[in-house]
Design a protein around this nucleic acid. Structure first.
Lengths: 251, 251
DNA sequence: CGCTTAATTGACACGCCTCAATAAAGGTGG
DNA sequence: CCACCTTTATTGAGGCGTGTCAATTAAGCG
């Protein structure tokens, strides 16, 4: 592969104007109950969780944490979008995931986070200190089991992504990407076939192991082929889910 | 990427001549205590674990489980090597990992394993039924925590691999691969700089997102450059770890 | 409105893939 | 231990998908 050399990691992320720790939040009124790792907890457990959670705001482009930071805080995304990424010393970037409302953020070993996390849009997070959370595990086993479940799901997603990066063409990658995002939106109650892409094409490129030019060209091609339509700058419509599936999983 | 089309998934794996469930095994005499998920358990816990474990043998090329199989058994590799893989409908394969003695096998959600597992060599496994294991969690919290830790580590490894597959050149991939294997052997007490590769080049190619030809050429080049030497068919020597590191993590 | 950032498109280059031929290694039976 | 066959590895020649470079347009934002 001919690699895109971008020079040393530019100050891609400026510390945003604000990152506000807000007052403790009432989890029972949470916008995304049922999606997140709080899902399946009883009233009592949610109340306990509420007592150790804290709402945070981050501005667009704010770096929430860097790869290698000690992993003693975990979050739940309640609003906005986050990208996870890794960098090579010479500045190449691999985006390893995008987080949307309801997603969990902060899995990591005692060696620290294996990836950085950065706000794509203005973001609202529910913050938990890890050791406080682990104290809760003692009395609320379901919480620990839920976290383990999340880690397992993440692992499955990561393996799908390895297949995509190692063995799929640009067109297949793009189709897979759009379909997966669409599925995630459906779980969140979005309209069927409508996909909101909060990230820029550079993010998509770094996620799919491509360049921005190839991403752009591939999107253009999918449009020409009548498989997708762009309703606004960040809003797409999947005109043929079947067609995209045929592309993403070639027989 | 121009993709190697291999035709439909060939009967790559014939059921081996034997897959023997042996009698319950005494974990306390285990070859790989300290490496595996049993690590850090006390005598009492190991004894309990022993009571629910069963030794298994699998012949080379035996498929231990397929992607999608219900994930109600987990294993510990005690001897030999295992490859994990995913397949596209048209037969392209992505190897998502190699397991060596001491490695844990069988992380997966209730949706089933996200990958298949196949014996590369003759393999010996320590088998645990998942629900029996989960019963043990009640009384032995450390075990559950250890599994969660393993899942977290796996996730970090997966993300490294995404960076490799999405953003590294063939030479960088090969150097990274050799170094990582070498590190794993050191943990197992192997000689420094000597690497045993139980897998064939097709496995390496499918792991690194390359073709067998590119793998072969890249190995040849690393030999020419004096960075590695082949002591026997599956045994390599890393002549310059530094040189390989410079290649694998370009500045 | 003016500036900056993001997206698009074309022309060309190149790293890796494809196809093909040959050599080497491994496995099996006598 | 050798003869035979299959599998695996090596190497070359050429093609192609995606990267690179560059110019232009569109979008975002104060």
């Amino acid at each position: 592969m001919a690699v895109e050399l971008k020079g040393l990691p530019k100050a891609r992320a400026k510390r945003g104007p604000w990152s506000t720790p807000c007052a403790a939040h009432d989890c029972r009124a949470c916008e995304i109950r049922g999606l997140t790792f709080c899902a399946g907890l009883d009233e009592n457990e949610v109340a306990t969780l509420s007592s150790i959670s804290r709402r945070m705001h981050f501005a667009k482009r704010h770096i929430i944490f860097q790869e290698g930071d000690s992993a003693d805080v975990v979050y739940n995304v309640t609003k906005g979008a986050v990208r996870l990424f890794k960098l090579t010393p010479d500045g190449r970037r691999q985006v390893t995931g995008f987080l949307l409302p309801g997603d969990f953020l902060g899995l990591g070993s005692r060696k620290g986070y294996a990836y950085g996390a950065e706000a794509i849009t203005e973001v609202e997070l529910c913050r938990f200190e890890r050791d406080k959370l682990e104290t809760l595990f003692e009395s609320h086993r379901g919480l620990e089991r839920r976290l383990f479940e999340i880690a397992n799901d993440e692992l499955a997603v990561a393996q799908d992504q390895m297949l995509l990066l190692g063995r799929k063409t640009a067109k297949e990658r793009m189709a897979s990407f759009l379909l997966k995002l669409s599925e995630r939106e459906e779980l969140r109650g979005g309209r069927d076939g409508a996909v909101y892409l909060p990230m820029v094409q550079e993010d998509i490129a770094d996620y799919l192991g491509l360049t921005i030019e190839t991403v752009s060209r591939t999107i253009s091609q999918l449009k020409r082929d009548g498989l997708i339509r762009q309703s606004s700058s960040h809003e797409f419509e999947l005109l043929s889910t079947e067609g995209l599936e045929d592309i993403s999983e070639p027989m």
